[in-house]
Design a protein around this nucleic acid. Sequence first.
DNA 1: CATGAATGAGTGTTCATTCAT
DNA 2: AATGAATGAACACTCATTCAT
Lengths: 188, 188, 188, 188
Amino acid sequence: MPRPKSDEKRSAIIAAATRVVSAEGLGASTASIAKEAGIANGSLFTYFETKTDLLNQLYLELKIEMAAAAMRGLAESGDLHDQFFQIWRNWTSWAVSHSEKRQALAQLSVCDELTSETRLAGHRTMAAIAELLERIRRNGPMNETPMAFLMTLMNSVAESTMDFMRQDPRRAKQHCRTGFEAVWRMVA
Amino acid sequence: MPRPKSDEKRSAIIAAATRVVSAEGLGASTASIAKEAGIANGSLFTYFETKTDLLNQLYLELKIEMAAAAMRGLAESGDLHDQFFQIWRNWTSWAVSHSEKRQALAQLSVCDELTSETRLAGHRTMAAIAELLERIRRNGPMNETPMAFLMTLMNSVAESTMDFMRQDPRRAKQHCRTGFEAVWRMVA
Amino acid sequence: MPRPKSDEKRSAIIAAATRVVSAEGLGASTASIAKEAGIANGSLFTYFETKTDLLNQLYLELKIEMAAAAMRGLAESGDLHDQFFQIWRNWTSWAVSHSEKRQALAQLSVCDELTSETRLAGHRTMAAIAELLERIRRNGPMNETPMAFLMTLMNSVAESTMDFMRQDPRRAKQHCRTGFEAVWRMVA
Amino acid sequence: MPRPKSDEKRSAIIAAATRVVSAEGLGASTASIAKEAGIANGSLFTYFETKTDLLNQLYLELKIEMAAAAMRGLAESGDLHDQFFQIWRNWTSWAVSHSEKRQALAQLSVCDELTSETRLAGHRTMAAIAELLERIRRNGPMNETPMAFLMTLMNSVAESTMDFMRQDPRRAKQHCRTGFEAVWRMVA
DNA sequence: CATGAATGAGTGTTCATTCAT
DNA sequence: AATGAATGAACACTCATTCAT
């Protein structure tokens, strides 16, 4: 795969797509994304073969950033509860403070055009969290449940939590805690 | 009296839209919906002023059907746990056995064009479930959490459960139970 | 030609068409005309075979009414100048006080769908005026000019006069006189 | 630099629109105009944002061309009568020999979608003629009449004259003269 | 490599007319 | 005769993608 000349321009497109998709949804035109990125209409296709390709890459990139944010500053040791809570806090507060990114991600998550590879890679992004969750549930009531199911469950609770934190920012901290404890009760 | 606007035809459009939206997403063309319904292109607009209007009505209709299915045969008495489980089982099994409807509903739930009235009416659909949940959590750890948050949480766990039941139908029953118990631990 | 049962309904359509065409132009839909007339969509076609047919008849009817208004109360005798001025005054003041009719007529006059028969019949409507004009010009500078040309000239001056009277109603009377005198100088 | 927006193509569209509008009226479809211009359906919108925009520009362009034709070769000096007659001759003969342009212009003149700016600019086109007319009428019977009224009057006589010249080309020259003299008697 | 004009299939919606009731 | 639902060809306009410059 030939690396395109300007990584800077690629990033500009990704950033523009984030903004435009979060504002206009997946129906946003490639033209409007290019304009937002400050490049020409057709140049977008130098960096991304098709619109679908762009959406796939955007999804993955946002997923990766989100996971990285969740893991930021995680102590290797420490008890599971604290480690998990720190991740939860990182995760949800990233979502609140990067609302365009999260909104774009939410739109992309329901996009028909994501390939299964992209989705898979997206899930792998959360491997570290999955491992932690695995250890948490080991002696809990869900120790027989497929991990994939568990991850989905956790994810969906996280999403709900984030939505509430955004809608009611004054009590964001409290909602964060509430969501966390709900998950903890579910699995631990 | 001329040919009366036929309920049958309206239903055919709604049914066609369900199928087409579940297969192609919200981008499905009104033409393809009309074709699927076996009517002329323009006739769709006799029954629904605009595509947006159709989507709103479809959403509401599916939501109502889903809620009705969930409540089917519910004993007025009985303990909360059993009542809730019955609902949960009704609900998730409706979703599994009407996967097109559920998929369409999933697409519609993220549709930008739903009016807030439609969404509100959609939520009201679940009022009976909400009441039950209210009584369940009364003495539980979430008795201070806003009901709206709780409902969202429950909903998202239900969605995840349904997804798993569909993906792995051989163990659908078990996944159903697992999801239920997870929610119960969260709130009760 | 079978006379339709209800002349009243036919008139209602003609009146409605006048209003709607004057407001929306020739692009006005038959549906909106029917609605304005208080009848059903399809009933319009009981009275007029096609939209074109309606427009043709409307044109003619308005032309006839306009001509009748122009001739109203005309003394058989009296000198040409006075007779002509009376007609001119009748004519332009009808236009000003029936602005919807005149506007509709103006739209219709440039309509591609008028048949040549309709146009011809429209012109015949003005026969009495033509005769008068014929006598007026007899010893004037235009005694060799084809009458058709003369009529067209007079008509277009009348139209301009009416426009000005409508635009500037406070000096309507004066504009009426100015237009009249201009024509008189042209032909007499 | 990419393919530059070609003036040639813009002109082709304008020319095509002239032909198609003169033949089919303002209802002519953008598709038929594009086809006549030999370009793709959507390319028309590269050059003109909307159909309305195209019609506005077409009107103005034709008006400008017409005015330029009228003024062609005008002697700065010479008496008013001769100057005005030359303009009149230029003007009417342009109309006769560019009948598509004139017909299109006639349609456009009654188009509801022309902006008032376009109309204003269209009138300014005739400023030089207006000035001449102003000087002509100075000592004549219409020296108190608003110039706008006078211009409208002159215009409508010119239109009638052109119509007759076209209908009866063998006597075009004579009709031209007749029309001119009629105007002259009106104002001078 | 960058540009933006060119393309043409596709969109939601309208409308004159027909016809079952 | 009256109704208004049904029809399907148009319509103005959009857009992902290509390609001449």
